[in-house]
Amino acid sequence: MLTEEGRAKVNLTLRVVGRRVDGYHDLESVVAFADCADRLSLTPGSELGLKTTGPLAEACGEAADNLVFKAAQLLAERVPDLKLGEFVLDKVLPVAAGIGGGSADAAAALRLLARLNGLALDDKRLHEVALLTGADVPVCLASRACDMSGVGENLLPLKLPEMPCVMVNPRIGVATKDVFTALGLQKGELLVGASDVIQAPAWPEGDASIGDWIEALAAGTNDLEAPAMRIQPLIGEVLAALRDAAGSRLARMSGSGATCFAIFEDGAAARRAAETIERAHPEWWVHAGTLS
């Protein structure tokens, strides 16, 4: 049996450049990965299968609709005699949460199949399948901090320090499609002009400190935060709880929501903030850890 982790993806910034004529949105986002993850295992066998376990297994829906299943089928169409088997997904990350849980699971499936079949992780077929499976799957395939642009195909690695964080999800799903609809861009419409591109923040290089990164990230934004809050106002309550936490330096929504995060310079402060939020909102999903 082979195993891989599907680490939660966090959009530290998310800028919507515009909507293309084909309907897809061009984005630019600084992406980090958290130390919380789903766990995916693969037992080699003659047929493709998927079972879900864990505290959030029921939220995964039908196996045939799971991105793990989709990624495996797409790869089998491109790799002759691809060895497959039975996947078991231990689901602990919230779904429809803006942290790429399904995408991380699909990326983990591709890494497992690559190991089983002796494929290099830079195999073009893996990356083709990753993008066809979902916009966040390519960045989750590498599962390392980067600047992501286009529709998820352009990845520029970044060197992030380990940043203490608290992640909070109110256990209410928000559909990405609904958020982009609420953003309201027409096909061919740009949200970012030439002056915005020129004035875009430059991300720290080398061994930059947490403080340097927080300063740079604070100059950015998440353009999906406002439309997501119109769909689900509870996101505003989550953000307020994170911003009010002692030691919180930057709080923002990840992806299309509803998960939000706060960055702290001190891990102890992050843990205390998580405990305070959990006591006040026991129905919320709360994780204290690190982003990198």
Rank of each mutant, 00 (worst) to 15 (best):
T53Q: 10
P80L: 03
L48W: 06
K9N: 02
E62I: 08
S103C: 02
V17D: 01
V88K: 09
A108M: 02
F180S: 15
G184V: 13
N11Y: 09
P138M: 06
A273F: 03
V238H: 15
T52I: 14
L67Q: 06
T221K: 10
D147H: 10
I172H: 13
F69C: 15
P94Q: 07
R271P: 05
L110M: 06
H25A: 05
G257I: 15
K124W: 05
K91H: 03
L291Q: 13
S143Q: 03
T52W: 15
P170G: 05
L2T: 00
G188Q: 13
G23T: 01
G118W: 14
R249S: 11
A182C: 08
S103G: 01
V92L: 05
D22A: 13
W203Q: 01
T276N: 08
E86W: 01
L112E: 00
M1S: 00
I99A: 14
A216Q: 12
L191P: 07
A288N: 11
L242C: 08
S41C: 09
A226D: 09
P44R: 00
L141K: 02
D147C: 11
L131I: 02
D207M: 09
P282R: 10
S46T: 05
Q232S: 10
A202L: 09
D35L: 14
D65Q: 10
V139W: 04
E62H: 13
P282D: 15
L110V: 09
S29R: 11
E283G: 15
A145L: 11
G211I: 06
A57L: 07
R20K: 14
G54K: 08
K91P: 06
L191Q: 12
L84N: 06
A72M: 05
K187C: 02
D207H: 03
H281C: 09
V17F: 06
W285V: 03
A64E: 14
L74R: 12
I198G: 04
G255C: 08
V10T: 09
D196K: 08
D90V: 00
M148V: 10
V92N: 08
E275G: 01
D81G: 14
P157L: 11
D81M: 07
V137Y: 06
